[in-house]
Computed example of a mutant assay.
Amino acid sequence: MCLIVLAWQVHPDYRLVVAANRDEFRERPASPAHWWTDAPHILAGRDLEAGGTWMGLTRQGRFAALTNYRDPSGHRPGAPSRGTLVRDCLSGSADTESTLNALAGVSGQYVGFNLFVSDGRTLGIHESTTGAVRRLEPGIYGLSNHVLNTDWPKLRRARSQFAEALKTLPEPEPMLRLLRDTTPAADHELPSTGVSLEWERLLSPVFVSTADYGTRCSSLITIGHDGNTRFSEWTWNAEGEVESQVEHRFTRRS
């Protein structure tokens, strides 16, 4: 994912609400969210090149989602795919803290990333570039291609709109509108992450759209206090039009 906004234990009806966009090169093959045949407990999209995923859930209430850390100087050819980390977190049974601490022990092998993990009871994050492992208190959090809650214009806009959209759930349209926001940042607000000014501009909206790279899918996850779970996902083509839409509903198993 390249943008994740989530609410943890702040909504009267939902334990967790997640709105996220996955940005990726358009030529990289992927499948929409589905129950995996080789790991039937996992509900996630799938990177068909490396076999991992960017975000997913399990029937037992586990959740994991990853964003890359934007730093061209950190590129390492041959480094393992970060999507396998999400898969492994979803396949495990350890609690959030233990999962994140184990992750921190191996994260130096990978190009920079951030990874949310929840065992269904607690939520935490590991930032590979800082080494931080943090348990998160109830609140609204935003993550893009830097560390948690970095004050980028796209995250400020997304978190503000997300807070308002929470009030309209279970209606998904306000959440989808914020994920489809193509408003660019002004030049003086752009971060400096090591890419060209042209690319900083192109990557500054919540919804990214270029011919070769952009927002490939948008996802909305709600997990109720009663265990009722809904995972909606929209896949977009290069013109920003809906290519496919899937929705999965299930009740968490204890």
Rank of each mutant, 00 (worst) to 15 (best):
G74P: 00
L143H: 05
A79Y: 06
A185P: 04
I125T: 10
R157Q: 06
T58V: 09
G142C: 10
D95T: 03
Q9R: 05
W36P: 00
V246G: 07
V10P: 07
I125C: 06
R28T: 04
T122E: 06
L123C: 03
R177Q: 14
E137N: 13
A7G: 15
P29S: 03
T53G: 05
T96C: 14
N149D: 15
G227H: 02
T53C: 11
T215Y: 01
A238D: 12
R249H: 15
L57T: 06
P72I: 08
L43E: 02
T129L: 12
A65L: 01
P77N: 03
G214D: 09
N237M: 05
N149Y: 14
N149R: 12
R70F: 08
D88A: 11
L155V: 14
N228P: 01
L155G: 06
P184H: 15
G45W: 00
T193C: 00
Q245L: 13
W8I: 11
D151I: 02
G124S: 09
P153T: 09
Q245G: 01
I4Y: 07
A185L: 12
S98P: 07
W35Y: 03
E241C: 07
Y213M: 11
D13R: 15
V18T: 10
S232T: 15
T251M: 13
S218H: 04
L103P: 00
E27H: 02
V18S: 10
R59F: 07
R216G: 01
D38C: 06
R135C: 14
H146G: 13
V195A: 12
D119V: 08
R121H: 13
T193D: 00
E24K: 07
E27V: 01
S196F: 13
A132N: 10
Y213I: 14
E173R: 08
L43I: 02
A64I: 05
S218L: 08
W8M: 10
H126D: 13
N145R: 07
T37H: 15
Y110M: 05
M1N: 00
N149C: 13
V133M: 03
G224F: 14
E97N: 02
I221L: 12
E164Q: 14
E173L: 12
T193I: 03
A238K: 12
T67W: 05
H248M: 05
M175I: 10
T67V: 03
D181F: 02
T129D: 04
H188L: 05
H188D: 10
T222W: 00
M1T: 05
V246Y: 06
S91G: 13
L176V: 09
F250I: 02
S98F: 08
L178C: 08
V106N: 05
D23K: 02
T99H: 13
C2I: 04
Q109K: 10
L166E: 11
